[in-house]
């Protein structure tokens, strides 16, 4: 115990916070998130934990990009007067 514990908790909290904006709802996101973390709860090798945290941080970036793109596309469709607004 102990190795990377803080990183893991911080990652979990960050993802939980981001889940509030998830298109399919917070509950959907939270249950998936919990399962994903629980699946790896028996891992104790610090190196392996670190690599999983790295992967988690990558997922954070992906979700940020997803939100940004979704917002951009919605606004573009709503406000653009171009002939084919569905493409972006």
């Amino acid at each position: 115990m102990g190795a990377g514990r803080r990183d893991v908790i911080a990652l979990y909290k960050t993802l939980l916070h981001m889940g509030r904006d998830y298109p399919q709802g917070y509950d959907f996101f939270r249950s998936r998130l919990k399962k994903a973390f629980q699946r790896n709860s028996d891992i104790s090798d610090p190196e392996q934990i670190q690599s999983l945290v790295k992967r988690g941080e990558f997922v954070v970036k992906e979700i940020e990009a997803l939100y940004m793109l979704k917002k951009y596309r919605t606004l573009k469709n709503r406000y653009s007067t171009e002939e084919n607004p569905s493409k972006s």
Binding site: K13, T14, H17, M18, E64, Y67, M68, L75, K76
Partner: peptide, 15 residues
């Protein structure tokens, strides 16, 4: 306007 930039996400620690 919309294409000026891509706003950053307000992260939990920053909030």
């Amino acid at each position: 306007d919309l294409r000026l930039n891509e706003p950053r996400y307000a992260t939990l620690p920053n909030i």
